[in-house]
Design a protein around this nucleic acid. Sequence first.
RNA 1: GGGCGCAUAGCUCAGUUGGUCAGAGCAUUCGGCUUACAACCGAAAGGUCACUGGUUCGAGUCCAGUUGCGCCCACCA
Length: 860
Amino acid sequence: MTQRSPDFSVPSKPSLDGVEEKWAQVWEQTGVYHFDRTAQRSQVYAIDTPPPTVSGSLHIGHVFSYTHTDIVARFQRMRGKAVFYPMGWDDNGLPTERRVQNYYGVRCDPSLAYDPDFSPPEKPDPKRQVPVSRRNFIELCERLTVADEQVFEHLWRRLGLSVDWRYTYATIDDDSRTASQRAFLRNFARGEAYLAEAPTLWDVTFRTAVAQAELEDRERTGAYHRIAFQRPDGRTVEVETTRPELIPACVALVVHPDDERYRELVGQSVRSPLFGVEVPVRAHELAEPDKGTGAAMICTFGDLTDVTWWRELNLPARPVVGWDGRILAQTPEAIVRPEGRDAYAQLVGATVHTARERIVEMLRASGELVGEPQPTTRPVKFYEKGDKPLEVVTTRQWYIRNGGRDAQVRDELIARGRELNWYPDHMRTRYENWVGGLNGDWLISRQRFFGIPFPVWYPLDSSGNPDYAAPILPDESALPIDPSSDVPPGYTEEQRGAAGGFIGDPDVMDTWATSSLSPQIAGRWERDNDLFHRVFPMDLRPQGQDIIRTWLFSTVVRSHFEHGGLPWHNTAISGWILDPDRKKMSKSKGNVVTPMDMLERYSSDAIRYWAASGRLGTDTALDEGQMKVGRRLAIKLLNASKFALSVAGPHSGADPAAVTEPLDRAMLAALSTVVADATSDLASYDHTRALERTERFFWELCDDYLELVKARAYDAEANPVAAASARSALLLALSTLHRLLAPFLPFVTEEVWSWWQEGSVHGAEWPDGTDLDTAAAGAGADVLHATAEALRGIRKAKSEAKLSMRADVARVRVCGKTAEDARRASADLAAAGNVQDLFFEDSDEVELHVDVELAESATG
RNA sequence: GGGCGCAUAGCUCAGUUGGUCAGAGCAUUCGGCUUACAACCGAAAGGUCACUGGUUCGAGUCCAGUUGCGCCCACCA
């Protein structure tokens, strides 16, 4: 039953102006979105909100997908669930470091000492970044992220996200550090995390290792250089390479075992050009006869295929490229000839790019370059945030098993993906493709500064060398720790770096190693297990399709190992926002629209309406037309609500028993169907359809029903019973529609609700249709449909006669199968159409015919 | 090379197990200042449902293939 305040307080001129500020403030004060942490798990709906990267800026795509989640949150809350809807900030990692460097004009130099009085330059000069200690750098990171987070929170509140802001976390805060380190220690104890020295994809700009999931291919121009190796018999064998600078790193040539051209060569040695190094010719299936000359150099390491060959053919390593992407100073021992050592000396210290140019000149001079380099374009691996091609460098790194080297783990993780409900379902395929295609474990260590350190020290032997096989680990109760300032149990700070002492692991975890624990962090795992067990496993993981391979997958991995199950039951995958030209939005294209502009121009509800019209998993165009439509809907809701309330009068409540007129009952029956459909749509994460049905009903209510009952509802003196019926039906419909639209348009629905109801519409009960069914008393919607159709016929006749809709009509004959239905609302129809003489005829015709005879005075 | 998705009015998109499914909104045109709303209301016009076959009494709807677009993956000498 609708609750009613004693008097309605409807503004004379309703407006959207100021509703966002007004209600955002009220919601904050009254705590309508607070999570009830006494609720049992079965009564909780928990959301694993994506923590946006605060170093970036929010774009309209964020607004789009976060709105989808908010609609779910509001729906579940109104259905009586205690909604756990936290917000996280992803503020650790490389993007923040980069932003801090640019913003403050500094760069991190870990060798410097902490300066407690440091303040960043007034005018940052990007060309002359001031070197600061690691601790100073991290303090600047923290300062800037706090400021960024406030900007984000402001936007989210303006958009009307029903987040419980008491449950906010940041991926760099102490709780996240503790959770990350704890989970890591447990992974290590179970053998799921391990340290290994291995060839790794390496970004030379950031000087850090990069994981498989963060790679992207970019087309780059290059050239095939045909070069000649000397055979023992004096002849040559030619290879083509796009990376001639790696000739000194060449450890073998490889050909396909079935390649007749080279069969006799396999097992022999050849001598490399310029450097004169003897390298064997080996056979391997991966060598492709039709690429280049069919013979290829194996270098340390040109690409991941080189790594495979190196490993499978048991070849030596001959590194020439350092962590900084420059040619190493140390001449490889294999280069023994003086002219070879000379040649190498000319490359030392050069970048890969420069070394390539020099070596081409040298090859040209020595006559070992065959023909001219042939330009080509080919895909080159890049770190997705980097500007230079990745190198392959051998380093010691931490890994977490993810099935990349273990078929059983892989199968288990694919099985987890099948347990998860995906919206839309086909997104599961992306997960399976990714997991099935992994070719290595998950590399989680990064050689960076602003991140969560590994909680690990290594003992130093008597000569000061670390023993990586026997790491020293802290007790979980000591977390979080920083091994660069904390001292391991049983040691003193004086022993740091000293022989027989210890050193801390210098690396930090990749940001995904932390965000993969977002359900545990938000749910306060092991810090507040009472809370954790009420929210975990969570109900929903909303996220973008681009990070299925990273965030979604890694979260499943962590939960699978730690909890033996999925971290959530459902995942909702959003599509992209495309600009009106169907291009993906990106900063570089300059087509990014700032969300706040949009919110101010069209109102938050209007933007939400546009977002809600985009389906999950479907790319959606940025469409200002839809925003205008949303704004119109919000304004219409103001006006229609005002009208309905003014017609109903200040003291009449909605009494289902008072609904006696067939038309009123039919309208409520139709609405009951809408309630049932919208409810099941939202329950299955189809917000678009729910909105569409609700909206359609609302406009039809305004266009037809309101027009039909206007006169009757006003005229209580002539027929009090019929008027009361209309008034009660109006209020029942209004109450239902306000609630149905609340998840989509939270501001305007709260505004209109406040005119006549106690409390927040967002704390109101989701309509279940019971009172509507009671009022409809078994009636169907036929009377409404037939009457509305007849009314349209009358309007059409007036429109064709170019008359005002108020024009009088002399006679109207309605005939057809449904004429009888329309007849049951004949008085309303006559009033709405200004018809003097209205009559009905039954016939078998399915279509309703409306013959209109205009009043003589009105024609012409 | 493999995988996923998409293709319906000028535009943005609905069309859930094949049978009123050829629709909505925007834009356009025409007509209305109707006392809730001109940030409004009413009406009209608009499409061989990408193409080719097939299954069926019947196909936007199912199957096969083709073309185009988008995205993901792949060992890229």
